[in-house]
Simulated assay, not measured.
Amino acid sequence: MASPEAFDVVVERIADQWGGLTDVVFENDDYQLPDTATEFVYVEIFGGFFDQISLGAELREDNLWREAGQVSFHVMTPNNSGSRRARDLAKQLVNLFRGQDIDTVTFRDASIGAGDPGRKFANYYAMTATVNFERDE
């Protein structure tokens, strides 16, 4: 899982910029699926590791450490409604982050689908978009 600092940047950016376009659900949030399938986005924020970038500080923890991670946006649309709307929402999400420096987090490259086709889950079709990030401390 990503650090609380990286998580907070993503949550705040979506709250400020998404404008209620769809519901947004984060990991382990309480969310009740409606009776009729409705668009929403499920967000997962992963941190891969903290890598020591600098050397020479008297105490190791005083060196520069870099967190690398990824945000996954699972865009959920009703089954059998095509993939165009999911792609559109995925691109809008990617554009909120790709190439941005927000607080201590630098968002890098992004992908829609990452080479994988969308897939069906119960009454929903999922298209996943990802954005990689780095954060220094």
Rank of each mutant, 00 (worst) to 15 (best):
I112E: 01
T36D: 03
Y42S: 14
P117R: 13
Q52T: 08
I45E: 00
R98C: 08
D8Q: 10
G115C: 12
I102N: 00
G99T: 07
E12I: 12
P34A: 03
L55N: 13
N79P: 06
D103I: 03
D109T: 11
S83Y: 09
D109S: 10
F73I: 07
V43Y: 01
M127W: 01
R13S: 09
N95V: 04
I102L: 06
L89P: 02
F73D: 02
R85G: 08
G115D: 03
D101T: 13
I112A: 04
L93R: 01
R84N: 15
V43N: 04
D101F: 10
D51L: 04
L59Y: 14
D88V: 11
V25M: 05
L64R: 14
Q92I: 03
T38L: 15
Q52C: 09
I45R: 04
D29R: 06
D51G: 05
V25S: 07
D8Y: 01
G82W: 01
G20P: 06
S3P: 00
P34E: 01
F7Q: 11
S81P: 05
D8K: 12
W18G: 12
Y31V: 08
I45Y: 03
V25D: 02
A129C: 02
F40D: 02
D62G: 10
E137T: 14
A2T: 03
H74N: 15
R108W: 12
R13L: 11
D29T: 05
S83E: 10
E61A: 13
G48F: 07
Q17Y: 09
A37D: 03
P4A: 14
D30S: 14
M76N: 13
V24R: 00
G99S: 07
F121R: 11
T38Q: 13
E44C: 09
N28D: 15
N80I: 11
S111P: 00
T128G: 02
Q32S: 15
G99A: 07
F97D: 06
W65G: 06
A57G: 08
W65D: 05
L59T: 12
L64N: 08
Q100S: 05
L89Y: 01
E58K: 11
D116F: 15
T130S: 11
V94P: 00
D116M: 11
L64K: 15
A126R: 15
E27S: 14
D51E: 14
D16S: 12
E58V: 12
N123S: 09
K91D: 14
A86D: 03
Q100K: 03
N123R: 09
D16H: 08
R85N: 08
D101M: 10
Y125A: 06
I14S: 04
F121K: 13
F49Y: 12
V71N: 00
F133D: 05
E137Y: 12
M76Y: 05
E27K: 13
D35H: 11
N123L: 12
